[in-house]
Design a protein around this nucleic acid. Structure first.
Lengths: 182, 182
DNA sequence: ATTATAATAAACACATTGTTGGAATTCAAC
DNA sequence: GTTGAATTCCAACAATGTGTTTATTATAAT
């Protein structure tokens, strides 16, 4: 599977990834030219094109890494038959917290929606417990997951003052019991 | 306030707006060059630059229009002291429905997050009814509004099979009472 | 009908793009 | 260590888009 034998390739990609994240803190992905990226990473432009087609391609690959990590992380905790618990939601939050910089950038306004969608698809794998007409289920799931991610993002951006446990509690409570339960 | 005296300007802007929406159905705003835009609208590139600085500027102005319309639309129905009702949520949905093409594009993956944020700010003006610790309120509001918008978007994209009334019901129910109430 | 304003057309220097061929370097593997 | 292979660097290229300018044509307002 993993055949990143050559250290040079790994190093180049790491440099470019680092440069990308840094530049994404300041401007939108579409405003980051390949030239600027290579300058920031101190990598030759030809070398960039040997690995990626453009800046979006690089971004997608970085996103893919995060999603893959998170996925294998989740697979340890999620059981198909057990609905979501505070435990595995807390797990996601802890993972996000330990990769806060990356998550903030990828979920932020300087990236496209791809990571958000991928993250949604991932969270959909965690079963929720609810009874509703089949026609309503998709809407309810969308509602819950989107709300969940936006709260996660807000929590990250504003400095992670609450513990992952507190946040997991808050989110599960509002998902299952709504605003009136507060 | 409104001094769009010259019909030529109005016409040019209308052409460009139409062309923009059309192109946004196919590709991301960052991949739409001013040149392509002018070609599609059959407007001279110099003319474009007389009105806008770039394609993002045009997009922002189109977004601004929609937000302004929606705002004045909402001001008829929203009372500061009355919490959100099925009535005014239904109003938003009807407005979105009658501008479905535009809303889908602006909320879709080919635009930036600006419209989404503006829409959130707008919906925040509608009071929600809930009691929670001050520290939690912002999270809960974010959760509710983001979920709300994502459901609206899904409804639009999937052909608006439900009536605005049904959707307003669904959304208010899940916001206030949660998944378990279904 | 006159005047003002807007749109057009053509040209410009500049930046980024994506690709090339060859030289220099670094790696891995023996 | 030496060698063969892979990777990176460098310089150059045509192509495309950018943002601005100038003069000319067309249209609106009164």
């Amino acid at each position: 599977m993993k055949e990143k034998t050559d250290r040079r390739v790994k190093y180049t990609k790491a440099l470019l990834k680092e440069a990308l994240v840094e530049l994404l803190k300041e401007r939108h992905i579409s405003k980051i030219s390949v030239t600027a990226l290579c300058e920031a990473a101190d990598v030759n432009r030809s070398t960039f094109y040997a690995h990626y087609t453009d800046q979006f391609d690089l971004l997608r690959q970085v996103e893919g890494e995060v999603i893959a990590n998170l996925k294998s992380f989740l697979e340890q905790y999620v059981d198909d038959r057990m609905p979501i618990t505070e435990q595995n939601l807390k797990g996601i939050l802890e993972y996000a917290k330990s990769n806060a910089d990356l998550f903030m950038v990828l979920l932020g306004e300087n990236c496209d929606h791809a990571f958000h969608y991928d993250l949604m698809e991932l969270v959909k794998l965690i079963p929720f417990q609810y009874n509703a007409k089949e026609s309503q289920k998709e809407y309810l799931l969308t509602f819950a997951i989107t709300g969940c991610i936006s709260v996660l993002y807000k929590w990250l951006v504003e400095g992670r003052k609450e513990t992952p446990e507190e946040m997991a509690n808050l989110v599960l409570k509002v998902i299952y019991n709504g605003l009136l339960s507060f």
